[in-house]
C-alpha cells in the first residue's frame, strides 16, 4: 500500500497561498519607538531653534505612529482570549497605551512620553507572564 501511495503521490507542490504570520511579537518594538518620542521631547525642550523643533515634531509623530502600529499588532495578533485569564486587564492596558500614544503624538511634554514608556512596560510584563519570550522569539529576548 505504501509503495502504491508513493507511486501516486504528486511530486509537485502548489500553494493555496495565504499570508503566513511570522509569529514574532515583542513589546520591545513599541518601546524603542516610544523611547525615540521621549528622547525627542527632551531634545525639543533643550533647543529653541525653530527649524530643529519643526523637524523634531515631524519625526516624533512618525515614531508615535510606529509605536501605535506595533502595539496594535501585539494586541490583535499575539494576545488571545485565553490570555485574559492571566492578564484580566489586558484590554485596558492596550486601550490606555494606544490612547497615550495619541497624546504623545500631539504633545511635546516629556512627562507624557515617560508615562507611555511605563504603560508599555506593563504590557511587557503581560507578554512575559503569558510566555511571550519563549513562544515568539527565536531564542528568547537577547540580553
Amino acid at each position: 500500500m505504501s509503495r502504491l501511495t508513493g507511486w501516486l503521490a504528486p511530486t509537485t507542490t502548489a500553494r493555496a497561498h495565504c499570508d503566513l504570520p511570522c509569529g514574532v511579537y515583542d513589546p520591545e518594538q513599541a518601546r524603542i519607538e516610544a523611547e525615540s518620542c521621549h528622547k525627542i521631547n527632551e531634545k525639543y525642550a533643550a533647543n529653541e531653534d525653530v527649524a530643529f523643533r519643526t523637524r523634531a515634531i515631524a519625526i516624533k509623530e512618525e515614531r508615535a505612529d510606529l509605536a501605535k502600529h506595533h502595539l496594535d499588532v501585539l494586541w490583535h495578533d499575539y494576545f488571545k482570549p485565553e490570555h485574559l485569564a492571566t492578564v484580566p486587564n489586558l484590554h485596558d492596558l492596550f486601550w490606555n497605551a494606544t490612547k497615550q500614544v495619541s497624546k504623545v503624538k500631539a504633545s511635546t511634554d516629556a512627562a507624557d512620553s515617560r508615562k507611555l514608556l511605563d504603560m508599555i512596560d506593563e504590557i511587557d510584563a503581560a507578554w512575559k507572564a503569558t510566555g511571550g519570550a519563549d513562544k515568539t522569539r527565536v531564542a528568547g529576548r537577547p540580553g
Binding site: A9, P10, C18
Partner: peptide, 16 residues
C-alpha cells in the same frame, strides 16, 4: 506537466 499536485496552505478552503 505537472499532472498531479499536492496542496499546501488553506486559501481555497473549503473546496480544496
Amino acid at each position: 506537466g505537472p499532472w498531479r499536485l499536492a496542496i499546501r496552505q488553506a486559501s481555497m478552503e473549503p473546496t480544496i
